[in-house]
């Protein structure tokens, strides 16, 4: 892997861990039905209580945990060798693309339907956008080299 790409992969790995830990924290609150530390007023509670936060019965943070865990494993596997790293890059981009579609849909749902903003969801959405940007950047570097 190119040095720049290696750095980008490390950043995506760290951001995925951060996203995973946030997701676990919010998920436990969904499962235990307990309060969430929230700097956006009662937004997190409003989001947690809304049936819209359980698409197909799955709590939204569980989807986040799965997505970030998948990204974490992919970025880890990319370090094994260059060939595997190249093969898995489209998977990272694919996962990040699904991630940004999902967070965009959920942010829209929060703002216009639930009418409450959850701080953790906002941070996670931003995190996913950064991961997407970095994975695209990796692809561009890969193509150049």
């Amino acid at each position: 892997m190119h040095t720049k790409e290696k750095t980008l992969n490390r950043i995506i790995f760290i951001l995925s861990i951060a996203g995973l830990l946030m997701g676990v924290y919010v998920l436990q609150s969904f499962l235990r039905q307990t309060g969430i530390i929230c700097l956006t007023g009662g937004g997190c509670e409003a989001v947690r209580r809304s049936p819209l936060s359980y698409p197909f019965g799955i709590p939204v943070p569980a989807i986040g945990v799965f997505g970030y865990a998948f990204l974490m494993v992919l970025t880890f596997l990319r370090t094994i060798n260059h060939q595997l790293g190249m093969k898995l890059l489209p998977w990272v981009i694919g996962m990040a693309t699904f991630g940004i579609c999902f967070v965009t849909w959920f942010t829209y749902t929060e703002v216009f339907q639930i009418k409450g903003i959850c701080m953790w969801c906002g941070i996670s959405a931003l995190n996913m956008y950064i991961i997407f940007g970095l994975s695209v950047k990796s692809l561009l570097i890969e193509k150049k080299s």
């Binding site: 790995f13 995973l20 830990l21 676990v24 370090t79």
Partner: peptide, 23 residues
């Protein structure tokens, strides 16, 4: 394993332990 892979593996295992413990 490369040193990069070993580092990632260590962090990955650490994270999994933290997540399981927290859950």
């Amino acid at each position: 394993l490369t040193s990069e892979t070993k580092l990632f593996l260590g962090v990955l295992v650490g994270t999994v332990i933290i997540v399981i413990g927290a859950m």
